[in-house]
Write a protein that binds this DNA or RNA. Structure first.
Lengths: 249, 249
DNA sequence: ACCTGAACACCGTTCAAGT
DNA sequence: ACCTGAACACCGTTCAAGT
């Protein structure tokens, strides 16, 4: 019963072939365990071998179901983002987009450590629900966009939404968090008013709450009001864009 | 002279202590080599050991100068983003922000593989130039923001800029790019018009050019017009926000 | 101060072999 | 079809020891 912290000890020995117990090993079950692991220790500490260990199985077994580490992560991202798309046809396009933004953020807040997968990995992009794409396009069509402007507006909306969330929940340095936070905090508080007057003057307002000058991410310090404002700005921006495209409305 | 593709063969043997040759090993030189490696093979293939090998040095030597892998990556990100901030006081706030967005994108386009470091890693966030922060705050102050709205507007601007770039240049799956692209392409082109009418109708417009339904990133298929529109929308959004805050202007 | 040489504790993935 | 057991070719980081 030798138990140390992270000993990847071989799983309970058993013979090959499908096990008798009801513990069916499926792609979904693997993704669940992977998500649990990411939730607990972050994406940096995620490993196939640890997933296998948690399932009481050899690493190769996981690969039989999942093909590759990246594919598994895409699966995880898909699971997190499933069901974020609001139902169609019940809201004005502005309200629909606002609702999508909020539901998307709620999903990410439940599993903040997968945030980096959304914006920063093309793989998991591809694993976002098609309903989301269709929904945004439908809303923008209702807003009067078509052709090239539709493409542009769509890209702006997706970038605005996922971009903000990717940044809000971007991970802290894996290891010596304490030391790093202290150093950045120090650096921020010794900003010279002569070199950076506006920043220095607004330091109490910005410290640890503004991008680039913060040492906690959205898990510890959520940017609620900024996100709400971002929704507002996105919609205002879309309306202005729509006016430019079809001035007669 | 045994030379295979990626043999981490021991470096040219030499004795300990500082070498005689003028090849000074500094933090900057290490960051340069790291950046070159990332440019060539991507962030996924980046390794401390390979950096060491390129420098003709043992892995431990790199650690003497850099402390940690994450710290080195932060250094690299800082190097890429150095000098993106436009000079102060020469442009209207709208033009200044637009210029910042464009220069930022140009920097990322020169080193697209570091894009994921910008939005998705809090470490490298902290290594962005303070001038950038100050500049954005100054522009927004000129636009009439102060207090809480200033914080919100700032966060929206940073998220809009870095978020878009993070997404535009998010990396493809490391390995079997070909197969993955083909599969996504296939999936996109078999979308059923009954389930996703707007998407299906606009497929020629969107395929491989819209987020989530593309299989190339910004390196192969740049989203120029979408980015320009994003700048426009951001500024329009800011102006609308400013009007809400101080209706008398 | 700066570097070697070797080790430690991990990785993802592959593959023959079992059932 | 599904899994074991072991191997391959890597990792980042640490540390005593050299100069």
């Amino acid at each position: 019963m030798a138990s140390t912290m992270k000993t990847t000890s071989p799983p309970k020995p058993r013979s090959a072939g499908r096990p008798a117990g009801g513990g069916e090993l499926t792609k979904q079950r693997i993704a669940e365990v992977a998500l649990a692991q990411i939730d607990e220790f972050g994406l940096g500490a995620f490993s196939m071998r640890e997933v296998a260990a948690r399932l009481g199985v050899y690493p190769a077994t996981v690969h039989w179901h999942v093909s590759t580490r990246e594919a598994l992560l895409a699966e995880v991202a898909a699971a997190v983002m499933a069901g974020v798309t609001p139902p169609a046809g019940k809201l004005e396009w502005q309200a629909w987009i606002a609702e999508l933004f909020r539901r998307c953020r709620d999903a990410v807040r439940r599993h903040p450590n997968v945030a980096q997968l959304l914006g920063a990995q093309l793989v998991s992009n591809g694993s976002l629900p098609t309903e989301l794409v269709e929904g945004v396009l439908a809303a923008l069509t209702e807003a009067g966009f078509e052709g090239e402007p539709l493409l542009e507006a769509y890209n702006c909306v997706i970038a605005a939404m996922l971009g903000f969330l990717t940044m809000e929940f971007s991970p802290l340095p894996a290891d010596n968090t304490q030391a790093w936070a202290e150093e950045l905090r120090e650096r921020v508080h010794t900003i010279r008013p002569l070199d950076h007057p506006v920043l220095a003057r607004n330091l109490p307002l910005l410290a640890n709450k503004a991008f680039i000058v913060r040492w906690d991410n959205g898990t510890a310090v959520p940017l609620d009001s900024s996100f709400e404002r971002h929704i507002q700005m996105t919609i205002d921006g879309l309306e202005a864009f729509a006016r430019r495209v079809r001035p007669g409305a």
